[in-house]
Nucleic acid binder design. Sequence first.
DNA 1: TGACCTCTCGGACAAATGTCCTATAGATAT
DNA 2: ATATCTATAGGACATTTGTCCGAGAGGTCA
Lengths: 194, 194
Amino acid sequence: MIQSNATLLEYISKPPFLKKWRTITQTRYEPSAVIIDQQSRSNSVYIIKRGMTKCFLTEDTGIDFIQEFFGAGELFGEVEFFTQSTNFCSVVTVSETEVFKFENNLFKSLLDTDRQFNFLVMQALASKVKYKAIRHAYNQSHRIDDKVLRLKKEYPLLFDKLLKKDIANYLGITIRSLNRTLNMLDTNYTISSS
Amino acid sequence: MIQSNATLLEYISKPPFLKKWRTITQTRYEPSAVIIDQQSRSNSVYIIKRGMTKCFLTEDTGIDFIQEFFGAGELFGEVEFFTQSTNFCSVVTVSETEVFKFENNLFKSLLDTDRQFNFLVMQALASKVKYKAIRHAYNQSHRIDDKVLRLKKEYPLLFDKLLKKDIANYLGITIRSLNRTLNMLDTNYTISSS
DNA sequence: TGACCTCTCGGACAAATGTCCTATAGATAT
DNA sequence: ATATCTATAGGACATTTGTCCGAGAGGTCA
């Protein structure tokens, strides 16, 4: 749900790295700011310093599907860098967010010269593949009740912080279905605990 | 649907690479052979030389969800290597398959010493992230008809080569729904073309 | 041959999910 | 104050999808 990467963030925040690469830009965004926009082209790779963003893909049907929410340490824009393609999803801030911004050439030279950074990026990519595989399998083989229930258990606070629309878009369902399920879960809980 | 990676396969098959690393094992598997098994631990990374495998994840519900079919050049087992975890999915041959097998330590030293190999692996990971993101978004926001129709258009031959069960597991639907949809598509086609 | 698999196919029904609509509350602008 | 916009909420209905069956075709083994 909220992906983060403490190891990567710590590494690039520490003196040896940060001192050596003074040219790394840090940028701050207000809530609802568009950092990268689907269909346009970015020429930078980002790592979140603090805050939260949502990463989503707009379908031809007009529906947004939220891939992940990104928290501290998450890397993004790297897929476009490696595949040398235009952005295939959008990244928009949910709360106020600060990022490290690596221009493509800088990112490339970091990968080539800093072996540990190189490995941390590989690990970040691998964990995304794993996370996505597990989530897709789960989503395809469980009903909405299961999905909502699991989300409520794992991130109880999230339902207060996010719009219903975002939660529905993350789960790949309609708001109507989300509401119906939430009602049902409440009813069941009341009955079984009374 | 069928993921492949010609660039990677070509690189590791060429003389400079293959001569230098004579210790790379090549193994051949019969159809339906289990190369890596969910829940157990593998200590190798693989690249497919020829043939086809399916990569799937078995859910707690007992349902298999097929992540991808792997063709020539596809890399697998690398996610477990980077995340240092047990296998999170199974890879089973569909047809007779031959693979290059890199023991973990060898793979690690290849990443460290061969810059081009290192970059090709990164690209392979990035393209998996991208592919998975697009597929999940599509699956969540389209109905079964759309999914089946697209699959038939993109891989018309596949319906003859694979079991119905595998196709259903790839699409995340039941065989019954798949059959119903295929019938409907046939009927529509006959009506509209007569 | 007969028993036993596995794969395929589709009817009948039930359950899950989406679509369409109306209503309310709060925020904002004119 | 009024209009307007957005988010929330849920009723009524239609559609989509899954579940549960039984049946047939072909393969294998004793």
